[in-house]
Design a protein around this nucleic acid. Structure first.
Lengths: 253, 253
DNA sequence: CCGCTAAAAACTGTCGACAGTTTTTCGCTT
DNA sequence: AAGCGAAAAACTGTCGACAGTTTTTAGCGG
């Protein structure tokens, strides 16, 4: 399997319970990173239970960092706390799709407006390189990565830390929807590739036009246009999802 | 112990907006509530250190729930984690003001658009009652509460849980700016009271007009107009802020 | 073979503890 | 009196443990 584990936990396999000599970097952060990757990649499927003791054993840590990682993931919308306190990988419906789209439109339109106010030739150059790369991308994953990179660039250049922070907490949900769709039907997303490039070029023109209002409006229609594939989405396997143990490979390193 | 402040009294008369369906982290939730109240009310001033052991002793709990409460407050933007891991009450500058304004415009415009799509006479009635109450409000605090209640109503009726969640994480920052401004200059906010009522009426008309785009636009200009007082804001006392011990009275159950 | 209850297993919320750091305190030097 | 640096105090990140719940499992009767 094309396993690409991001987990970065040193040792812990050979040495049984060494008093952890050093390198005590933020475990919670690492756990969140690994779990995020597992969830988006689909290794952990929607509905899977995320029990703290299980994850703690898996990552060779105590429950404290796991707990914080789960809070972080909940904030990002990738997992859900149940009323009983248990945690499950979130599953997305078409309603969620629409919500994410609207949230993106709201945040990114405003960001585009502000970014357009301070737009520079260097920004244009960056986006142009990105679009070029998109037109040459050979895989869906690459295409998605570039698309998100472009949008993140605009968010960062809105020069509004709050806008960016809010966007970050929707970003992973969007990536997950994207990844899920790709897995469900590979072809779908390839068709609009050229259309997408055109749309991005128009967006770039608006950003560089010196007209913030135009940038905002163009961003809105760009996002709405690019998220039309939502109808094809559906999730089923709520149950029988693999337990956290299934991602053991990712936890080890 | 000259001060004997009542524990948080975050309203509950008009709109029991927190149904509290068996909250998950219990102590954590209470601690967050109390601290939030202390921060917004100004009992805990910007720059104050929030040390976990101190708060734990204060609330008679262990550090675990305190820690989660602090994470919650950080998510809401009321406190800031430093690179050393310590936590301080956040202080707001005019830049923050502008950021919050833009974030509100982005989120609430979209919410207004969606809310307008499903607007009902009952909604109009609720908002009308709210505006009437505003015109009769006798204190600044009451006025603010009603204003926020109105905006929260629109957010909730956008029927988009994500939009609402994002808004919640900006809400308290906004309330804090509001409260700070009020403390700094009582008179300022009273002048535009009537203007504010007019603006709200126009907003209501837009929401009920059946034209989502108009509702969005009107909401945007309403927020921008209502947040002009930002210039008067300034924060100074970064240091020598009272330690958490100062709010002991509030910590008592 | 199915449904139902009771025991067993697993999980969450919370607690106290410890090691490594960061911040304060305080005595000494200039 | 200001400056400096080491010792003391306080804090964070993490760990293991326990009580109260919730979910599973297992056994029993129909």
């Amino acid at each position: 399997m094309p396993d690409r584990s991001l987990a970065s936990r040193p040792e812990s396999s050979a040495a049984p319970q060494t008093p952890a000599p050093r390198a005590r970097r933020n475990i919670a952060r690492e756990v969140a990173l690994a779990l995020r990757s597992d969830i988006i990649s689909g290794r952990l499927r929607p509905g899977s239970a995320l029990a703290e003791p299980v994850l703690a054993r898996l990552f060779g840590s105590s429950r404290a960092p796991i707990r914080e990682a789960l809070i972080e993931l909940e904030r990002e919308g990738l997992v859900q706390f149940q009323t009983t306190g248990r945690t499950k990988v979130r599953s997305f419906t078409e309603t969620d799709f629409a919500e994410i789209r609207d949230a993106r439109v709201a945040l990114e339109s405003m960001a585009a407006r502000r970014a357009a106010e301070n737009w520079t030739p260097a920004d244009t150059a960056f986006i142009e390189r990105n679009i070029d790369a998109q037109s040459k991308a050979s895989t869906l994953a690459e295409l998605s990565r570039l698309d998100i990179e472009l949008h993140e660039y605009v968010m960062k250049h809105s020069d509004n830390k709050r806008l960016l922070a809010l966007w970050q907490s929707v970003r992973w949900q969007f990536e997950m929807c994207l990844a899920t769709t790709h897995r469900l039907q590979q072809k779908l997303a390839f068709k609009p590739r050229n259309i997408s490039v055109v749309s991005h070029r128009r967006l770039l023109a608006a950003l560089a036009s010196g007209k913030p209002a135009l940038a905002a409006e163009t961003m809105a229609s760009h996002i709405e246009g690019s998220m039309e594939w939502s109808s094809s989405y559906h999730d089923s396997d709520e149950d029988k999802a693999p337990s956290a143990a299934a991602v053991q490979a990712n936890a080890q390193t």
